[in-house]
Design a protein around this nucleic acid. Structure first.
Lengths: 151, 151
DNA sequence: TGCTTCTATTTAACCTGTTAAGTATCATAA
DNA sequence: TTATGATACTTAACAGGTTAAATAGAAGCA
C-alpha cells in the first residue's frame, strides 16, 4: 500500500480522469521522494531549484531567474532572502540598471550543490528506471505540449 | 507568445526534461484557465474541489473527504471553516463516533455548484478539444500510472 | 529638462502545503 | 474497568502561490 497518505481506494473515475487532479497526484508522488532528501539537506524544493539554476547558468538577475525556476517574483524575493541569510548566494545591484538585482552562488552555495546533486540524481534515476525510460520521455513530451497550449 | 508570465525562451533542455518542473508547468498552464473563473465565483481551486466532491458523494466525514480531494487534513480544516462561514456546508459530529465530523452541502452550497459547474465544464471541454481527446486520455493514463508507482 | 510611462523588485494580504505536536474519542486487552 | 494505544481532527509554525498595490529606477518624448 502507498505510504503517501493518499491511497486509491474508492477513487471514482471522475477524479482519476480530471487533468488538474491527475497532475496534482503525479507531482505529489514524485515530490514525496525528493522532499525528505532535500529537507535532510535543509532545503525546500524551490530553494534547491534556485541554487541549481544559479549553478547551471552562473550569475543571473532576479527576473531571469524567476522565469527559469518557474517561481513568481514575490516568492522569489522570500527565497532569495533565505538563501542570502544562509550564505549560499550573494546579491548586488546591477550597476548598469539599478533596478536589477544580480544573484550568484557563494562558495558555500557551490558546496551545497555538490552535496545535494548526487542524492537528487540517484532519486531521479530510480524514478525513471521504475517508470521506464520511454514512458518518461513520452510523459515529458505530453506535459510540455500541454504547457505550450497556453496562450 | 504565452501570456502566462512564463515563456519558453532560453529554457534549457535540462529544465524541460525535468519531471517535477514539467509537471509544475503543465499544472500551472491548466489552472491558469480555471483560477480566474473560480475567483469570479469567490472560490479557490481547493474550495471548489471540496464542494464538488460533497456534491458527487453526498455527506462524508472529513478523512474520507480529504482523501478524495487530495487535500491534507490541516488544509481541509481551514477550507471547511471558510465554507461553513460562507454557509455552503454544514458539519455535525457523527453520533456513532464522536471523533468524526460529518460534512454536507447546504442549499446554498448546492446552488454554488450549479452556478460554477457549467463554467468549469466549458473550460475543461476547451482544453480537451485543443489538446486532443486521445492525447488527453494518454496523458491521464501516464499520470495515473506514475502516481501509482508510489510505495 | 520635466513629465509620463514602462520595468524590476518588494510589500501586503490571503490561501494552501507541509510537518510536528496537541486534544478528544474510540478500541483493546490486562 | 482502566491503562494503553490507535484514530480523527485541530493547532501551530513556517514556506510558497497568487493577486494587487507600492516603490524605485530607467526610457521615451514634448
Amino acid at each position: 500500500m502507498a505510504t503517501t497518505g493518499h491511497d486509491t481506494r474508492l477513487l471514482p473515475g471522475s477524479t482519476l480522469r480530471s487533468l488538474p487532479i491527475a497532475l496534482l497526484r503525479a507531482r505529489e508522488s514524485i515530490m514525496s521522494r525528493f522532499r525528505p532528501m532535500l529537507a535532510a539537506h535543509g532545503l525546500t524544493e524551490q530553494q534547491w531549484r534556485v541554487i541549481r539554476i544559479l549553478d547551471e547558468h552562473g550569475s543571473l538577475d532576479a527576473s531571469h531567474l524567476a522565469r527559469l525556476a518557474f517561481i513568481l517574483s514575490p516568492s522569489l524575493t522570500r527565497i532569495l532572502a533565505f538563501l542570502e541569510r544562509e550564505g549560499m548566494i550573494h546579491s548586488t545591484t546591477d550597476p548598469h540598471d539599478r533596478r536589477r538585482t544580480l544573484l550568484g552562488l557563494t562558495p558555500q552555495g557551490v558546496a551545497k550543490i555538490g552535496a545535494v546533486a548526487p542524492d537528487s540524481a540517484r532519486i531521479y534515476r530510480l524514478i525513471e528506471e521504475r517508470f521506464g525510460h520511454d514512458r518518461t520521455e513520452a510523459l515529458l513530451d505530453l506535459l510540455n505540449e500541454l504547457a505550450e497550449q497556453a496562450d
